[in-house]
Amino acid sequence: MNAEGTSRRAWGQRLRIGALVLLAVLISVVSGSAQQTDLVQERALAYRAARSQHQAALDAWTVREQQWNDAVEEHDRARRAGDGQRTSAALIRALDLGRELDLLERRVKDQRTVLNTARASLLAALDNRIVSLNAQLGGARTAADRARLTALLRDLENQESDLEEEGQVQLVAVTYYPSIQFDMRDTPQTLGYKAQLLRSKAEQQDSVMKHIDREIERIDRDLRRNRNAQSLVTGVERYGDIQVLVGAPNRRTSPGDVRARPDSAGVARPEMTPQQKIGYLRLLRGQVEAAKRQFLQRAADFENQARRIG
């Protein structure tokens, strides 16, 4: 009796342990699956947020690029008309917009990095989910389960493929003068016109670059003369060697005030130093050169396309 009773208790204990283990396994499988679903959802949300931020940065860049392009064109027109004041105003505006364009381009790049990271995380989560669903599909007992899991798998694979495609599209750099684009309705003739327009834009960039180079040279010459004058004055005033000027004793001109100047948005900032102006002119030149390269590349693409269609 005692032996029988002991054996029954042992069996009962084993059954209880087995039931607990089974429960634990079930809970872990169910929660793991739920966690995977949550992770995909969470990363999909993060990806959508990153994508909209990237799009916002890109839109801001495009708006500024249009203003920048207008300023560069206005500068070229004013220069051809020989209007010095208009040329100078357009150049200042182009310089301001060039700086803003540069900042926005950096923001686009930063957002693109965030977007790429979010995409890679989402792809990894989708991969894990697909592997897990494939395992479930292998063990599915009913046709209804198999159909449901297959549909889920197809949906996830489509999501994955869309993400990869989006990644390819977003690799393209920011586009200058984006209003000239390929259209499905384009004939060889319209493609030729578009190529011609882009080539004339590239020539315009050449002329702007030449002017910027001359401007940099001019400021550099002025800067050197100014520095020579400033160094002489500060050098002799520093030790009071020139303090025989009239006025209150020991009066000395205070270091130059920094005047205000309005930027392209009408907001006053401290006046640029000549060195800063040279730096911004170089930045503008780089942007104009990048735009020119894009125009020539896109013109060649349009011409190739026209040849293919024609």
Binding site: R221, N228, L232, V236, I242, V244, L245
Partner: peptide, 24 residues
Amino acid sequence: LSARSLVSVPLPFDVGATLLAVVT
């Protein structure tokens, strides 16, 4: 009465000449 002049001009060979004169 004080007069002051500061003039800086470029010369050949990259030389810059600056003259500062003050008469009081």
